[in-house]
Amino acid sequence: MTLDPQLILDSLPLIAQGLGITLKLLFYSSLFGIALAVITLLMRISGRWYLSWPAQAYIYFFRGTPILVQIFIIYYGLPQFGFIRNSILWPILREPFTCCVIALGLNSGAYVSEILRGGVLGVDKGLTEAGKALGLSSPQRFIYITAPIAIRLSLPAYSNEFISTLKATALASTVTLMDVTGVARTLVSQTYAPYEIFIAAAILYLAFAWISYVALAWLEARASRYVKKGN
């Protein structure tokens, strides 16, 4: 098997056509995931079992099952129920794109929720007490003290999770989406040149992962500017 570098170069612009869908998937599912993560985090730290248990069950399920299975359950599984096809949700669930955003978002939400919980647990208890002593209400303490610090503490782990989500978007190609991987697989099926084309796809993913790393590292540095250096 010889590698044809020219073919890699030639296929790059073709595969790049899928970048739009890949990035849209990444954007919307990350956003959805963050929203879910915050909600489930609040449920978990609410101290009320009837809120905390469902949140834990959700996290347990989505962290314990493969994303591909989650995508298939949502994409192929849900429409098996007639009432879902007749419900107002169908216009959303009918679309492979939204199905993927839901699956990826639910999955990422479970992980990010745990990451944020780690961040919250990492916030010095003394700061909450200082907030209490100053008369801040519990939501105020969370919003103005715990959350900003927890977010900073969560950023390194979140950066990994973001890249994981980027890579997971490739699974969208299994439910008809023409993302980077979808386009690449289609090209492969037409050209029978899997090495060159998948290498080209890998280059695109790597490039974007690198950009994400840099951006998130910058964000982390910005968020940490108040942290004392060197100790």
Partner: peptide, 18 residues
Amino acid sequence: LQVYDGNEPMLLDLANGR
């Protein structure tokens, strides 16, 4: 075009109205 990796999922989606 909506591209499938096999006949079965494609026909399933046809049946489901996708």
